[in-house]
Design a binder for these strands. Structure first.
Length: 496
RNA sequence: GGCGUUAUGGUGUAACUGGUUAACACGUCGCCCUCUCAAGGCGAAGAGUCCGGGUUCGAGCCCCGGUAACGCUACCA
């Protein structure tokens, strides 16, 4: 076996990308890694994979820290707490990747590619049209040293690609690795593409960065999602090219939507911020995640399916994990959360309500919207109830303008959702984004904002819309629109 | 299309190394409690284990062949 020997110290990691709200899948994989490390007196490392500058969201990293801590999944090493193998932010390690890419280049395990994205796009389209697997055609694989020198001298941007055997000196035709949950998995090399390792902007792709970092950070077990299985042969090839020991691989099942597709924000709330702000307790979410895929003995706590993180560390069995993708079912999560809420003492419950529903920060922001709008304090609730409610479904006479029919209204709401998803949650970003959409679709500012107001607040009368949405939060606002659209869809289906 | 993975009620999981009418939880439905709604209590329906072969006295568990779903197939992770 080529996997890590048992004497090696256990070190695991999660490596989220700061591309938006922290994802529930990150929490799931984080939980598993956390348990694995704690069970074996190992180290749990948090590494930030911020190598994609096009998708980078500056506020994302802090949200990842906050939400993982909220769940109780603390790490031993990471960008904020340091550690002996730093830096733990990949953008601060670009020099390391460049050096390692050079090693690969020198050993003939990688090569420079001068093809432009546009050229590659053309080729890919042709291949797809011809029903061929879209793959790099190898144009630059055998450039002479002279040609490469000329291109470099001409300042042509280039990427560095993995030279997948058997084209090179190594004539092995396939790569086999062991997945600890599924056994041996083999990929023929003609199904493995010459993956880009170093992009033309000098940043590495996931494949290079994750292998280099996992080795340098002495990661013993790579516990990640199933979607990585297909690219694992590339990683194994890299370990071999460097002459490094290969870690154990554990590919965990993918959380699913109700329709069994990979969990996605289109069909499910996936933001941990959403779960926090909608009043889920971290203990309940952790417990629920622990139910996904199994792993806990069925008789724990009399088979109530209720257990703590500490109990998971004590009893969880990794080899018992089921690899069929579990549906992330909000219905059961809600039940579980209710169980946890009921288990609190009345005083603890009150404290949770006070801090999570009527937190000072939240109330302060809402108050500032209300001061000019009420005459007695008792009216406070009249215009603000939507801030404290979960089910806000406006009746048709509230959201439907006399000038618009149902279909175009729902279509426009769908457009609003898409625009809002892609917009920073600030007044300066939201206002022009919404107005631009309105102009494109010929919806007046009034129609535009009134529809959104109806969806968010359930009423035609409310505090200023954008300010309200900002206070209410992006995750919850988007979810409210999604649920509105879903509810309308169901209604339409019933009528038929 | 290619490659890979997976497959137990609607959903999440159980079922000792193959051994009685496939178990539990959520959800659904009904009843009780009750001013309402929850919670709680009691009960019911719902799968014959993706399909087809094979091995065996016996298969959800083993073997072979299908099918379907999902994932990957980017200068994203």
């Amino acid at each position: 076996m080529t996997s890590a020997s048992s004497e090696t110290a256990i070190r695991v990691r999660i490596a989220p990308s700061p591309t938006g709200d922290p994802h529930v899948g990150t929490a799931y994989i984080g939980l598993l890694n956390y348990i694995y490390a704690r069970q074996r007196s190992g180290k749990f490392v948090l590494r930030i994979e911020d190598t994609d500058r096009t998708r980078f969201v500056p506020t994302s990293e802090q949200m990842i820290f906050d939400s993982l801590r909220w769940l109780g999944l603390g790490w031993d090493e990471g960008p904020d707490v340091g550690g002996p193998f730093g830096p733990y932010r990949q953008s601060e390690r670009t020099e390391i990747y460049r050096e390692h890419a050079d090693i690969l280049l020198n050993r003939g395990k990688a090569y420079r590619c001068f093809c432009t994205p546009e050229e590659l796009e053309v080729v890919r389209k042709q291949q797809i049209a011809a029903k061929l697997p879209p793959r790099y055609p190898g144009t630059c694989r055998h450039l002479s040293a002279e040609q490469i020198g000329q291109n470099l001298a001409a300042g042509k941007p280039c990427t560095i690609r993995l030279a997948v055997p058997p084209h090179g000196a190594d004539l092995t035709s396939s790569t086999t690795f062991r997945d600890e949950l599924r056994g041996q998995i083999t990929f023929e090399h003609n199904n493995v593409d010459d993956q880009i390792l170093l992009k033309s902007d000098g940043f590495p792709t996931y494949h290079l960065a994750n292998v280099v970092d996992d080795h340098l950070m002495q990661i013993s077990d790579v516990i990640r999602a199933e979607e990585w299985i297909s690219s694992t042969p590339k990683h194994v090839l890299l370990y071999k090219a460097f002459g490094w020991q290969i870690p154990r691989f554990w590919h965990m099942p993918l959380l699913r939507n109700l329709d069994k597709s990979k969990i996605s924000k289109r069909k499910n709330p996936v933001s941990l911020i959403y779960y926090r702000d909608s009043g889920y307790l971290p203990e309940a979410l952790i417990n629920f995640l622990g139910l996904m895929g199994g792993g806990m003995p069925a008789d724990i706590n009399d088979g109530t399916e209720q257990f703590t993180l500490a109990e998971m560390v004590e009893h969880f069995v990794f080899t018992d994990i089921r690899v069929g993708g579990p549906v992330f079912d909000l219905t059961k999560l809600k039940w579980l959360n209710g169980e946890y809420l009921r288990k609190l003492t009345p005083e603890d419950f009150f404290q949770v309500v006070r801090s999570r529903v009527f937190g000072d920060d939240y109330l302060r922001q809402i108050s500032s919207l209300m001061q000019t709008r009420i005459e007695t304090l008792a009216q406070f609730g009249d215009l603000t109830s939507f801030f404290f409610s979960d089910n806000v479904i406006p009746p048709q006479d509230v959201f439907l303008s006399k000038k618009r029919n149902l279909e175009e209204t729902l279509n426009f709401a769908q457009d609003q959702l898409a625009v809002l998803e892609a917009t920073d949650w600030t007044h300066d970003a939201l206002e022009p984004a919404l107005k631009k959409l309105g102009e494109e679709k010929s919806w007046s500012v009034k129609e535009n904002f009134m529809l959104l107001r109806a969806i968010i607040t359930g009423s035609t009368m409310s505090p200023p819309l954008l300010e309200s949405m900002i206070v209410f939060g992006k995750a919850r606002s988007l979810d409210r629109i999604r649920r509105f659209l879903e509810a309308q869809k169901k209604l339409a289906a019933q009528k038929k």
